[in-house]
């Protein structure tokens, strides 16, 4: 699904900067989230994701730059904005000695939403059966789900989830992912979800922003990112060197690598005409194979880090 440019901006930062101890950890970030987006906010650990999110929620004050959410400046209208925002920052916060219901009730009293919301959000995250147990005994996945339930309590228009799958086992990750994917359909909410793993958000995000060393180095639809990730086509032919010369002389952008011909970003038509040309000139074409660069490797290239992935 391609985003049209006139879609309403729900969140917008302008040259957002945060210095901690004189060191910039978020540098002039311009971020745009549109209504209905599932925005994957990606970056290696320590890239500035959580610091950015803290500023978006008014938990930390920007050193410079501004944030507008629902068209309002966070510095001036923090309460009005937060009334329509649900959030889960880093690991979940909860009161271990209280039950899931009591935890939600503690937040509900501050939000002033009807009591029935507690049962509703518990059922969305499928914790209804565990509602009367102290949260202390919950698994990390259950705590994380409770965190999401808490975020949903105020029926938010924007849901901010910071690393919601961090530390979960694969089954837990899958469960949270399904849950998040199902949300926009059920409640029409816009979601900002951060992760240090592209693979975690790639299946649900409609747009991605990639942050590295405090700078937003990429922001576009996941669709575009996939296009970038589209690999090249490799051709195995007889007498490759003269085949290469022939193709070059006809103006095809072919490369030469380990005795194979490579064509970068080749569309179907180009590939077909290359093959036709080769066959016509009596070259034998053994194989035409697509070599897809994974999104992950593009991400790695962009962020220039490997360790944290």
């Amino acid at each position: 699904m391609e985003m049209s440019a006139n879609q309403e901006l729900i969140l917008e930062t302008n040259e957002l900067t945060k210095k901690l101890g004189g060191k910039p950890v978020v540098k002039a970030v311009n971020m745009q989230i549109r209504r209905g987006d599932i925005y994957g906010f990606l970056g290696p650990n320590g890239a500035g994701k959580t610091t950015t999110i803290r500023m978006l929620l008014g938990l930390a004050k920007p050193t410079a730059g501004s944030i507008r959410i629902f068209g309002k400046d966070i510095r001036k209208m923090r309460l009005a904005i937060l009334r329509k925002v649900g959030s889960l920052v880093e690991y979940p916060s909860y009161y271990g000695h209280l039950t899931a219901t009591e935890n939600l009730e503690a937040v509900r009293r501050l939000l002033g939403v009807p009591k029935s919301r507690i049962d509703e959000v518990l059922s969305i995250v499928r914790l209804t059966k565990e509602a009367k147990r102290p949260v202390r005994g919950f698994s990390l996945g259950m705590k994380q789900r409770l965190g999401i339930a808490t975020a949903l309590l105020g029926d938010p228009e924007l849901l901010v989830l910071d690393e919601p799958t961090n530390g979960l086992d694969p089954a837990g990750i899958q469960e949270i992912r399904e849950l998040i994917k199902s949300l926009p359909q059920t409640s029409g909410v816009t979601i900002l979800i951060s992760s240090h793993l592209l693979s975690e958000v790639e299946q649900m995000a409609t747009r991605v922003g990639i942050i590295s060393k405090g700078e937003l180095i990429y922001e576009d639809s996941i669709h575009r990112l996939r296009e970038q990730a589209q690999g090249r086509v490799r051709l195995g032919v007889s007498n490759p060197e003269s085949a290469w010369r022939l193709l070059l002389s006809h103006g095809y952008p072919v490369g030469w690598e380990n005795g194979r011909l490579t064509v970068a970003k080749a569309d179907d038509r180009t590939v077909a005409s290359i093959v036709a040309r080769l066959v016509k000139q009596d070259f034998e074409v053994y194989r035409v194979e697509e070599e897809t660069a994974s999104l992950e490797s593009i991400f790695l290239q962009m962020t220039g880090t490997e360790g944290s992935l």
């Binding site: 008014g58 309460l79 271990g96 501050l110 808490t150």
Partner: peptide, 14 residues
């Protein structure tokens, strides 16, 4: 204990 300040302070309260 559970670093719940960020939970409370990201709610619409002063």
């Amino acid at each position: 204990q559970m670093n719940a300040w960020k939970l409370t302070l990201a709610l619409p309260v002063r």
